[in-house]
Amino acid sequence: MDLTLGAVLRRGLLAGLAAGVAAALVALFVVEPVIRDALVVEEARAAAEPAGAHEEELVTRTTQVIGGMLAAVVVALCLAVVLAVVFAAVRHRLPGGTDFGRLGALAAYGFVTVALLPGVKYPANPPAVGDPDTVTTRTLQYFSLIAAAIAVTWLAFAVRNALRRRDWPAPRAVVVSTIAAVTGYVLLLVLWPANPDPIPADIASLLWRFRLASLAELAALWGTLGLTMGLLLTTRRTPATPATAAT
């Protein structure tokens, strides 16, 4: 059963578009209402400061809403390219039995590695919460955590494949590699430095509404991407020659 990179990429991009639209819709209907509430807080604080401290508006709110949705679509398409190429490269070593299962496993780990884990360690904040002076530090923390999480995920898959080569039953290999992954993730969460910004306690409920909304958008993106791409890979037309029982 031969699968070409082009076939994977085409299905990946289509799924990426669907994922982008799903994420953009969640952005519009779930995240934006919370951002509007956060901006009310920001304006109230700015009004309390001496005149002249206000930031010039570079783009309008409407433009930012559209920009946010567009950003979700472009990011989803980019993630789809990454997921498609990585899937093509490691497909023959992924667990799952079918392309839907293999892609599902990879996408699930992808969501945990680059979205859920950084979301737990450095929860998303609405505009006007982060300190501009610490943004470089926070960016470094965020991306180094993702890089380390990718390494842990890769190691977990390596453990699983090493155990399979030693003829371990598939479920046991999956359980052991999952334990390895979770242990690695927990270590990262403990070892990585905390967000240096003080968290404003007066808007705690607003913060958590925003964080859940942000995770909802990321989950919509990854969920749609993984499921759609898995589905597209499954329904792909196989050549007239029947696939040998090699799945």
Partner: peptide, 19 residues
């Protein structure tokens, strides 16, 4: 600057650090 402001909501929504 424009790019930053244009994708500002998207960045916050996707959980990336920002000011």
């Amino acid at each position: 600057d424009f790019m930053h402001e244009f994708t500002h909501d998207g960045r916050h929504a996707l959980g990336v650090p920002c000011h």
